[in-house]
Design a protein around this nucleic acid. Structure first.
Length: 577
RNA sequence: GACUCAGUAGCUCAGCUGGCAGAGCAUCUCCCUUUUAAGGAGAGGGUCCAGGGUUCGAGCCCCUGCUGAGUCACCA
């Protein structure tokens, strides 16, 4: 029941108690009205540094450093927009006889991490820092755990940063408080989505929501999560894509719909895969994939420039990406020709298998023609496309929802956008021939029979919708997490998700006060003797060396005995409780 | 799934050939009325990830497990 508390946590609980005893509520309910954010104070003071005699300003935030200095001290207060220094002068904060607010509350009972409110006058210190001279101090919320202290010197070198990735991801709230960069990553993530949304809305496309719980997980080849609906007593799947539902909306008469969707895939996790991730999918009627390529590069250029101070260039690791439209375009066949020397045009399955063999690519019997081509591309080509590049015209077998190419029925009107060797977006001229679509689903069933556990299910209702008629449509999906990684210079998806999936922390079973045989034996002797030379006790216990060592340490850990070193040697005695 | 590395104070990390558990920051006490990685003097703080084993003796060596990171494999 009782939680183990560290020394510092106990001290903070003591301070909490003391505040209450002084009549100060450490968790007050009332609204605290700040007049400025920290950045406003910096900006406004710089503008008016000469004449302006500042009236009282009022700020609130978390106290991040304390430099206590006799009768005058400094603290940095951090709000959502940055930090500002506060000057606490004993006789200014406490003009009367009673100096308790300064001496006791500020200096003793407040800690780094506490939320406070300050009113005061803005001035510039001798060191040239814009500072608030505190005239009042309000405790807004007491922090009971010590934050990691991250210090920065004049050159911007960071000391004692909170860097352990496990702790950062498990305690993202702490990460956000102490690591400025982290907050910026997530702000950029939101700005990316806002810029995209704005781009679509300007064109009058409609943002929609479609089911996450689906009876048939469609629209992609992936292993789904399965769950169960109790009242309906039926299985439901968490969506792996929203494609089939958005197309139903095009059938229903919308000309442009899009959705920012959380998708879920029950697959492995690594630095580019999280079980839940965010995809933006958009479908526009009467368009084809050529139109969509233009649209995509235009949209990305808009997104990049609006989060990137107008520049199309983005630093990613040691590379410089340029999102200036138009992007390079190459067909998959040409890409393979370029990077392997093989022209796979017109090859059958056996010939493709031979190519794989020659290129040292492993194959198995479940792989059809499309999968083989995909393997060759993935293995030999994909990684080469660092700058944004559209790869077009994928084999028909691996694109069951995509129109056959108008010039060559072995391929489809599909493109993927590769950036930094990774697939970021995927788009089609959507298949709207219901009979063709039914056949493609049936081919997927054959693949499934061959052992491909990611082949698609047949969605009869989706086919019914197509039979009612869907206009020619182009659709595109883009991975928001991966795009964010690229635009924030992060190589791990965990850095762009607030709460990446983690295994649960091992909650250690509470250690019960239970003595083992050896500990009991020693304890019994001690209860009689109370105090004994260590060697005598060891002999009388009759324990082996190992058992003795473990037992005596065990007792000490439980606080039942203690070892005392004196001139005459080592003594063991019962610890009084 | 395989391999490599890591887990020690609130945080960042040392810890030699196996021999009493260390530093900086943070914390506590004292001094200091414009400091800023404030400073000075002193003090306290540990389930060395967990469980076994080897040993007179394990933070260190061996085995098993847990958690994380990286590389690879898998992967619309």
């Amino acid at each position: 029941m009782s939680q183990h508390l560290s020394e510092q946590e106990l001290q903070r609980r003591e301070a909490l108690k003391s505040l209450r005893e002084m009549g100060i509520d450490p968790y007050p309910a009332a609204e605290y009205k700040a007049s400025h954010f920290s950045k406003d104070i910096h900006a406004a003071y710089e503008d008016n540094s000469e004449a302006q005699e500042w009236k009282e300003v009022c700020i609130s935030g978390r106290m991040m450093t304390q430099r206590i200095n006799g009768k005058a001290s400094f603290a940095d207060v951090m709000d959502s927009h940055g930090r500002v220094q506060v000057y606490f002068n004993r006789d200014i904060l406490c003009p009367g006889e009673d100096k308790e607010l300064y001496n006791t509350v500020f200096k003793r009972l407040l800690d780094i991490g506490d939320f406070i409110g300050i009113t005061g006058r803005v001035f510039k210190t001798n060191m040239g820092e814009i500072t608030i001279e505190a005239h009042s101090l309000t405790v807004l919320s007491k922090s009971l755990r010590p934050l990691p202290i991250v210090k920065k010197d004049k050159e911007g070198n960071i000391y004692d940063a909170f860097t352990n990735p496990e702790q950062r991801y498990r305690m993202r709230y702490v990460d956000l408080v102490v690591n400025d960069k982290v907050k910026n990553t997530f702000i950029t993530r939101t700005r990316i989505m806002n810029a995209m949304r704005e781009f679509f809305n300007r064109k009058d496309y409609l943002e929609v929501e479609t089911p996450i719980l689906q009876p048939i997980p469609g629209g992609a080849a992936a292993r789904p999560f399965i769950t169960h609906h109790n009242a309906l007593d039926m299985p439901l799947y968490l969506r792996i894509a929203n494609e089939l539902y958005l197309k139903r909306l095009i059938v229903g008469g919308f000309e442009g719909v899009y959705e920012f969707a959380k998708d879920f895939r029950n697959e492995g996790m690594d630095r580019t895969h999280n079980p839940e991730f965010t995809v933006m999918e958009i479908y526009v009627a009467y368009k084809d994939y050529f139109w969509m390529m233009n649209f995509t590069e235009e949209m990305l250029e808009h997104v990049v420039t609006s989060v990137n101070k107008g520049s199309t260039e983005v630093k990613l690791g040691d590379k410089l990406l340029n999102f200036k439209a138009p992007f390079a375009r190459i067909t998959m066949v040409d890409a393979i020709k370029e990077h392997t020397g093989y022209d796979i045009t017109g090859m059958d399955e056996a010939a493709l298998r031979d190519v794989c063999k020659a290129l040292n690519i492993e194959t198995d019997d479940s792989m059809g023609k499309g999968k083989l081509i995909d393997e060759i591309f993935g293995e030999k080509c994909e990684g080469n496309y660092i700058q944004p590049t559209f790869i077009t015209d994928y084999p028909v077998e691996m694109s069951p929802l995509c129109k056959k190419h108008r010039d060559n029925p072995d391929f489809t009107e599909r493109f993927e956008l590769m950036i930094n060797g990774k697939e970021v977006a995927n788009a089609y001229s959507e298949l709207n021939d219901p009979i063709d679509q039914r056949e493609r689903f049936e081919e997927q069933l054959n693949l499934s029979a061959k052992g491909d556990d990611e082949a698609m299910f047949i969605d009869q209702d989706f086919l019914r919708a197509l039979e009612f008629g869907m206009p020619p449509t182009s659709g595109m999906g883009i991975g928001i997490d991966r795009l964010t990684m690229m635009l924030t210079d992060n190589s791990s998806i965990q850095e762009v998700l607030f709460f990446p999936q983690m295994k649960p922390e091992n909650k250690e079973s509470k250690k019960v006060l239970e003595l083992n045989e050896g500990e009991k034996a020693i304890f019994e002797i001690l209860k009689v003797e109370n105090r004994l030379a260590l060697d005598d006790l060891k002999t009388r216990s009759g324990l082996s060396n190992k058992a003795w060592d473990k037992s005596i340490k065990g007792l000490a850990k439980m606080g039942l005995s203690k070892v005392e070193k004196t001139e005459e040697g080592l003594f063991v005695e019962l610890a009084e409780d």
